[in-house]
Every structure is written in C-alpha cells, then in structure tokens.
C-alpha cells in the first residue's frame, strides 16, 4: 500500500486499556471492558445506520453501495459485486492538523531552511 511504513509500532486494545487504567483510575479489567463498551456503542450505532460524529477526531458514516461488476483477479471471471453497506471515516481538521504538525508521523522530515543560512545570503560582498 502506498506510503505505509513497516517500521512503526502497532497500538491495540491493550494500550488503550492501559491508558484508560492510568488516566481514569479504574481496575485494568474494568478499563478493558469499558474500551470494549465504547467500540460496541460505536459499532451498534453504525449498524443501525447512524452516523458517529466525534468532534475534533472525525466522523464515521455508513454508505450504501450499488451492485457493480467485478472480476476475480485469479481466474479473470466476471462476478457481480452485490449491493452492500460500507463504512467511511472522515478525519476532522483537528486530527489532520495534529498528524501533520507532529514530525514523528513524517518519515522524511522536510529540511526547513535555517534562518542562519538565509541571513547569510544578503551579507554585503566586500571582496571588491
């Protein structure tokens, strides 16, 4: 997949549970249940066809897709792709900004021109 990196870490329910445990002061077991509970509430809402809007994070929306013809990539055989419901996530501006402002997310940080070198350019030429 384009632009995906293999070097980074993967966060799972375990880390979310640990963060809730540290942050809220409930037991680890209860923290794990509550993380699951949050995901369940979101899933249930989406399955009912509702949109889930989490301000400063993003929104999840269910879209209805019509039938179209696809192809089995292995056999080349044409097969109908049945109408289905898909989930679309739209990140909020706040999330997009956070991700772009943190240099950790950029594997090759842009080398910003330093003021020192810029300042050096207009130095008067004293060679003549």
């Amino acid at each position: 997949m384009v632009g995906e990196q293999a070097v980074n870490d993967t966060i799972t329910r375990a880390q979310l549970t640990e963060a809730v445990y540290q942050e809220v002061g409930l037991s680890r077991n209860e923290s794990a249940d509550l993380v699951e509970s949050v995901l369940d509430e979101m899933s249930d809402s989406l399955i009912r066809g509702e949109m889930v809007k989490l301000s400063s994070f993003g929104s999840f929306q269910v879209r209805q897709k019509g039938q179209r013809m696809g192809r089995n990539p292995k056999t080349g055989e044409e097969v109908p792709i049945l109408p289905r419901r898909v989930l679309v996530f739209r990140p909020s501006h706040v999330l997009k900004k956070r991700i772009n402002d943190d240099p950790g997310a950029t594997p090759e940080p842009m080398s910003a021109p330093s003021f020192a070198s810029e300042g050096a350019i207009p130095e008067p030429d004293t060679s003549y």
């Binding site: 990196q5 980074n8 870490d9 993967t10 966060i11 799972t12 329910r13 880390q15 979310l16 963060a19 809730v20 942050e23 809220v24 509550l34 993380v35 949050v38 995901l39 979101m42 899933s43 989490l54 400063s56 994070f57 999330l95 956070r98 991700i99 402002d101 943190d102 950790g104 997310a105 950029t106 594997p107």
Partner: peptide, 24 residues
C-alpha cells in the same frame, strides 16, 4: 474514558503508528 481513547489513537497516528482494533 472516551477522551483518553481518542487521544491515544490521535497520538499514535501522530507518531506514525498504526492502531489495530480487531473486529472494529
């Protein structure tokens, strides 16, 4: 709880990490 979960996901993405929530 909700704020912590969303913050953890955001911070992970800002570090360039992936957040995998099986089933979700």
């Amino acid at each position: 709880i909700v704020a912590t979960i969303l913050e953890e996901i955001t911070a992970a993405l800002a570090r360039g990490d992936r957040v995998e929530l099986r089933g979700f």
